[in-house]
Design a protein around this nucleic acid. Structure first.
Length: 803
DNA sequence: CAGTGAGCGAGCTTCCGCTTGACTT
């Protein structure tokens, strides 16, 4: 039996550490927290110094009983949970729950998983730091009080099952307020002058711009006009060296941002893949707010850089965390072995690993060096100068492995910043230039960008709200509650004017561009807006961006032993609870009902509001003799912004457009856009076609086209069963077997598939069978899971919606 | 990919932060 039991939080960590320590140590994991507040309302006694009731949740019972047994047998128990507030509390909960003895327990900490770090930690054991534990309790209790008093107010004043909390409500607020900024935004137009020059006949062209813009078209036209007969001369030439430095290695938040931009991963996906890499021993811990690398890591990186790229590419760097409230219990995210430039694994794992490797290696590399050339070009007929810039890389440095991307890159890439890296031909001061082309293009200022999941995480981190372990779950929560949606939206067309010089004349053209198109952006829903406005009105101090920063400061004081945690909570809870009572008693039910106007055909009021099933438009009122008419709002429409015309349009569909094969055709708009319904089939309208304007002939053509395409998709029909056929799908060939779709195993020769193969594969795919059963309408028995929450309730609601 | 939108009323919902599986889909 091992003399020593050492407990850490993560099982993967336990395995690594066990390798560093000898036979005398048994290393086990607590799997995070082992106790939590009971889920009922009596978890905290606010009348008795916020005394808490804890319990071991059912999924932790087996861990706890095993640790208890091992602790009893060991001569010494080493509590090695993380060195931060939560980690200290885990140690304390372990101490209490496992009924450890003071003289048989030691608390140790390390913030990197290396052999020397752990051996030196064992040399310097300490006691549990109760100030830190108290700070954690204050945090835990405050979050419970806020969440469990605020949420019921919403149940009563808005809608059941809603939630509010210190973190999620601010996340929603950020999105709601950003949406309003975008709605309020009015674009300013101005004209940007761009010219192409050469140094002589047959020479390469280069670009120059006018630094200032013209607000009026007439001024821009005048400039072009003045340039028709002007001469152009290089009036000054300046060469300046420039440097660019690498970024710090990844934290959770920067990894999520970069994986979102470069790999298109959601934050949840990034964390799932990173977890697999961590468990495979490929990377260090992925939930961290630290940019710090251990000394051993810094040395290993140096060795690899010198070996792979040479001495001059290496530069030792140490990074400082600037995120508010960082606790730095771990290292930055880095590869465990820098010598592994890439790894085996699935596509996502390989790509994420490569990103982490490059970023960590680059962080220990030298600057990239450039020479930046700026040439001013004198226009003989004007006082303004045109400017041409060029950049030449002199030394690639860290750019050899890694180039960080930027949030703006995804936006209108044709717009700005083009030409920044362009090369200029050799120029001399005073040199005359030949103008090839010149244009003045109308450009518009841009509204603030909508948040992506990753940019929202970035913002939350800047505000010190949430922790690396909660960013991804928070993003999921606000979507699951229906407060926000991650969506694509089509843009709208916009005209802009381009003036060019053509045959010694200024020529004006009107061009069209798409603006405002969004991919995977966070949009608030009407419920999100309603809840947010309610909370802002009644609990502004809790929903304030700086509330977390304020209480964090107090938690720090508690951790330092400078403040009593119950006193802090008392100061907070008194006014907060009064506000809850007052709101419950006096506040009106939240509503955003808005009257848009009067229906011209009936003279009845047209209103929008949030109904039982979401936002809707209503014509007439409930206490009318005649029943009101209802219509749901569509994707992209919100109560706050919908116009009277758009609202009335909702009542024009579905619309009959005629007959085909003796069956009616109806045009409507569904979840996936406008469609024609004919018999029991659906046919999507081609993009850009106005559903209001579809004629009978057009509709028939769409149906015929779709049928033709369906026929073309079929590769082969099986003689044994005409219901079985091989088709070309979006992701390659697959087999359709009646209602079931059957996957073709990788590496199969499609021409050689027999009907027996089809039956065999279909049988081996329980997932496909279940889907087919669902399609056929046969109810799959709803399994009663042993878990108490959610499951059963959800099952009843889904069976209800399924006719 | 449709139609729903009221009310009857008991019992339920909910927080944040630390960790992974064991489950379906």
């Amino acid at each position: 039996m091992a003399k020593n039991l050492l407990i850490v939080e993560s099982p993967a960590k336990a395995k690594t550490i066990e390798g560093y320590l000898g036979k005398d140590f048994l290393v086990k994991s607590s799997y995070g927290h082992i106790r939590d507040l009971v889920k009922t309302d009596d978890a905290i006694d606010t009348d008795d110094n916020f005394k808490q009731k804890y319990e071991v949740p059912s999924d932790k019972k087996s861990v706890v009983s095993e640790l208890k047994k091992l602790a009893k047998e060991a001569e010494m128990v080493w509590l090695a949970s993380d060195e931060d507030r939560e980690g200290e509390a885990i140690s304390w909960h372990l101490y209490e729950t496992l009924a450890l003895k003071d003289d048989k327990t030691k608390r140790i900490v390390f913030h990197e998983i290396t052999k020397p770090a752990i051996l030196s930690a064992i040399e310097k054991p300490r006691k549990i730091d109760f100030n830190l534990v108290n700070a954690q309790q204050a945090r835990r209790v405050l979050d419970r009080l806020v969440g469990f008093e605020l949420s019921p107010v919403l149940w009563k004043k808005v809608k059941p099952s809603l939630s509010a909390g210190r973190v999620q409500s601010v996340a929603v607020r950020l999105i709601v307020e950003r949406e309003r900024e975008i709605n309020r935004f009015e674009a300013d137009a101005s004209y940007k002058i761009v010219a192409q020059f050469t140094t002589g006949i047959g020479r390469e062209q280069f670009k120059a711009e006018l630094p200032q813009r013209f607000e009026d078209k007439a001024d821009a036209a005048q400039f072009l006009n003045d340039c028709i007969r002007a001469s152009f001369k290089v009036s000054s030439l300046e060469k300046k060296p420039a440097k660019r430095s690498p970024s710090a290695p990844f934290t959770t938040s920067t990894l999520q941002q970069e994986a979102s931009r470069k790999l298109g991963f959601s934050v949840a996906r990034t964390m799932q893949v990173a977890q697999r890499l961590y468990e495979a021993g490929r990377i260090t811990y992925m939930r961290t707010d630290s940019v710090n690398l251990s000394d051993t890591a810094i040395q290993a990186a140096e060795q690899e850089i010198v070996h792979a790229y040479g001495e001059k590419y290496h530069k030792l760097r140490r990074y400082k965390t600037k995120a508010a409230g960082a606790q730095e219990a771990h290292e930055a995210i880095r590869p465990t072995y820098f010598s592994e430039h890439s790894i085996e694994g699935d596509n996502a794992e390989r790509r994420l690993y490569e990103l982490i490797w490059k970023r960590a290696i680059a962080s220990q590399m030298s600057e990239a060096e450039f020479e930046k050339t700026t040439a001013k070009i004198d226009v003989s007929t004007r006082t303004e100068d045109l400017v041409a810039t060029g950049e030449v890389m002199k030394f690639d440095g860290f750019l050899k492995v890694y180039m960080e991307s930027n949030d703006d890159d995804a936006e209108n890439s044709t717009d700005e910043r083009e030409g920044d890296n362009a090369l200029l031909p050799p120029l001399d001061g005073g040199q005359m230039l030949t103008l090839k082309t010149m244009s003045a293009t109308e450009r518009f200022s841009r509204p603030p960008a909508r948040y992506t999941e990753a940019s929202l995480v970035k913002k939350l981190e800047e505000l010190g709200i949430g922790r690396p372990s909660t960013y991804a779950p928070t993003i999921s929560t606000i979507q699951n509650r229906g407060y926000v949606l991650k969506e694509d939206r089509d843009g709208r067309e916009r005209h802009y004017t381009v003036l060019t010089i053509s045959e010694e004349q200024v020529l004006e053209q009107i061009k069209t561009e798409t603006t405002g198109a969004e991919r995977s952006k966070m949009f608030p829903t009407d419920i999100g807006v309603l809840v947010n406005d309610f909370l802002v009105e009644h609990f502004n101090d809790i929903i304030d961006y700086h509330f977390t920063a304020k209480v964090e400061k107090e938690f720090d004081e508690i951790a330092q032993g400078d403040k009593d945690w119950t006193a802090m909570l008392k100061d907070f809870y008194g006014p907060f609870h009064d506000g809850i009572q007052d709101t419950l008693e006096n506040a009106d039910r939240a509503s955003h009902e808005r009257e848009l106007g009067v229906d011209p055909s009936t003279g009845k009021p047209v209103t929008v509001r949030v109904g039982r099933f979401g936002p809707l438009v209503q014509i007439g009122s409930a206490d009318d003799d005649e029943k009101p008419r209802f219509a749901s709002l569509r994707k992209g429409q919100m109560i706050e912004t919908i116009t009277f015309e758009d609202a009335m349009d909702l009542f024009k569909l579905p619309k009959k457009v005629g007959e085909f094969e003796e069956k009616e055709m109806t045009v409507a708009i569904g979840r996936f856009g406008p469609y024609i319904r004919h018999a029991s089939a659906f046919y999507s309208l081609p993009k850009g076609m106005d559903p209001m304007e579809v004629s009978q002939d057009e509709a028939i053509q769409i149906i015929k086209d779709k049928r033709q395409k369906d026929i073309e998709k079929v590769i082969r029909v099986f003689e044994e069963n005409p219901e079985a056929q091989i088709e070309n799908g979006r992701w390659g060939p697959f087999i359709r077997l009646g209602k079931q779709n059957v996957k073709i195993p990788k590496g199969t020769d499609v021409d050689k598939i027999s009907y027996e193969d089809v039956l065999k594969w279909a049988d081996a795919d329980p997932k496909g069978k279940a889907a087919a059963a669902k399609k056929a309408g046969t109810k799959t028995a709803t399994k009663k899971t042993t878990a108490k929450k959610g499951g059963a309730k959800k099952a009843t609601t889904t069976s209800k919606t399924k006719k």
